[in-house]
Amino acid sequence: MSAEPILSVKDLKVHFPVRGGLLGTSRSLKAVDGVSFDVFPSETLGIVGESGSGKSTIGRAVLQLIKPTAGRVAWLGKNIAGHSRGQMKPYRREMQIVFQDPLASLNPRMTAGDIIAEPLDTFEPGLSAAERKKRVQEIMAKVGLLPQMINRYPHEFSGGQNQRIGIARAMILKPKLIVADEPVSSLDVSIRAQIINLLADLQKEMGVALIFISHDLAVVRHVSHRVLVLYLGKVMELAKADILLSRPRHPYTQALLSAAPIPDPAVERGKKRLLIEGDLPSPLNPPSGCVFRTRCPIAQAKCAREVPALEARAGAADHVVACHFPS
């Protein structure tokens, strides 16, 4: 991994005002609350978290599709946090997104070819019709779509094929970063593997960096070089994928790992599950101190008083954990 990150996020906060209550008081929902991470060229950073952890909000805030409340988002050293649509336009060429629901994220009245060509039309409007078609068919072949499907509409494709169209659209300008927000969650198991393999191949071939957002730890581990574990808008742990899986230090990471079912009867039957109780607390009213303490099996009085900082805590420098009592 080269030393200079392409994306550097520092203390990112996204708070949404929520009106309600008898007196119409306004509270704020802290969807993302002080998150920092770097993304290096050609790497995949996995972001894993349960619903409401803020993982999708981070992806959108990085691309300025949601304006951050505070913090810095540096793209190749330049802060873009709070940039307007117009200011963002030159950056859109280099940063793209793939969404969870492939059908909902494609315009049903446009052909596959026109959908895939949209970024080209925006950034290279002078292209001749023949050149445009050639570029579209090239990328279609790369993502595993038959070039003769260029004039079909999204409803004529299956879910997996539509996701390929979404990936082709994101890839056609050869961006440096793609945010993939649950790109395989709505797909069937056999199709999911196709898309995971496709993303891995494209990354190898084109050197694009990926932020891969998912609730599925096994999928995230499989595709990512480094993994960031998120809980209630805060980073719990960040480490190299294999290290995080083999030596998790945060009790939440340990619980997540233990909770994920392993497709092997012998392993599953012999497994002692480390169950954590209850559900995620409301992000409107997060616990004081460490946000995980209400479900943490090893919480102590200090955890309610002090927010644990994300630090190496006597471990390797590239393995940081936000816990007062890491293992």
Partner: peptide, 21 residues
Amino acid sequence: VGSIPRLDKPGEERLTAIRGQ
């Protein structure tokens, strides 16, 4: 069985996807 990524095995190997739909 081959298309599920496994948490308890190193993640380098390719998943054996079933082609088509």
